[in-house]
Design a protein around this nucleic acid. Structure first.
Lengths: 189, 189
DNA sequence: TTCTTGTGAGACATGGATGTCTCACATGGG
DNA sequence: CCCATGTGAGACATCCATGTCTCACAAGAA
């Protein structure tokens, strides 16, 4: 009975399809999500009890990918600047999902959010703090704000790509360069 | 008969209340919007034919405030850098509304968007282009991306403020400094 | 006062998304 | 072959936001 594996594969495929669709149209119907995954609404419902469960699962997936990217980026190696660069590179494929979850979180309002985000926030903020401590980053921009700004830029970048205003290949460069270097020209050092 | 004026005042008040509410909870019900404005749902309906009309009116208000901020910022005066600073200062009070409209626009999908945004995009992009031409701004970040990033940072800043992660008084500084200077420390010039 | 006007409250129908159910079918193993 | 399992299609009830309507009330003008 390999059905457990089969279920898992299908579930993941459904999740990926849903993420791809909801990135483009955050209000997509369960019917549309099902069609996008190539399954019927009934089967979709067998995997996820309801829309809420689906969003929660997507949130878990987003957190998972985010933490995987943080791990892969080796935040404690060499300079904080390079670590940021690596992280954005690693997170690129999940940026659309992040953008969806970023706005979705806005309307959770009262409810407590998944603890995973707090962990992720802490790791990213710690990275910026390390950069400040080492003298790489300026200290008048708080780590919390830099973290928030990074999310915002990732979302902006993901949307700009889906709407064709930004070439996918420029995604990482545009985000990292703006976040780290800003728009002003540097004096040649 | 001063009723026209009275209507206009009420309508504006309703619009402001709706903007404030929808900034915090973008899925708020017509009922909630009415309560937030201190009127009944029936009266709200007398001002705006439906939710769609309300959102359109908010869009028009956002465009109006945005263009007013662009005018007030005198984009063609002195350095592009200072013009950006002035613009962010001017737009601060409308940033929440902008953030709401920014995400709302994501789900317009097929429909053509209000031409006002194209005008605004063009003016902001032109500002960044001027900065590049004058040598103030680096040329590897496209004006279109800088414009997009500015929107993203304004939205991130507005949300961070409403959720208490950013002090309102730091709003302009955090956004402008990150956008223009980036996170890296500058060598003292 | 009387009439007009805007409003609030509520009833009511509508539409759309959702959740649940049944049933027929296809596939794959025994 | 026969049975079990997962699936698709569709019917169905339900919920919720929305849009429309009526009616009574309060405030202001004539």
């Amino acid at each position: 009975m390999g059905y457990i594996c089969l279920m898992a594969v299908d579930r993941d495929h459904v999740l990926r399809s849903a993420a791809a669709l909801l990135t483009r149209k955050s209000t997509a119907t369960m019917d549309e999500v099902a069609k996008a995954a190539g399954i019927s609404r009934a089967t979709l419902h067998r995997h996820f009890a309801g829309r809420d469960a689906l969003v929660r699962a997507l949130e878990a997936l987003g957190i998972e990918e985010c933490e995987a990217a943080l791990d892969a980026a080796r935040l404690d190696d060499d300079s904080a600047q390079e670590a940021v660069r690596r992280f954005v590179t690693e997170i690129e494929s999940a940026a659309g999902l992040l953008a969806f979850l970023y706005t979705e979180n806005q309307l959770f309002e009262g409810e407590e959010q998944n603890a995973g985000w707090a962990r992720i926030d802490a790791r990213i903020a710690a990275l910026f703090r390390r950069g400040q401590a080492s003298g790489e980053f300026r200290i008048d921009l708080t780590p919390a704000w830099l973290t928030e700004a990074l999310y915002g830029l990732l979302a902006s970048g993901a949307w700009a790509v889906t709407e064709g205003r930004l070439a996918p290949k420029d995604f990482t460069h545009m985000i990292v360069e703006l976040l780290l270097g800003g728009a002003l020209r540097r004096e040649e050092s």
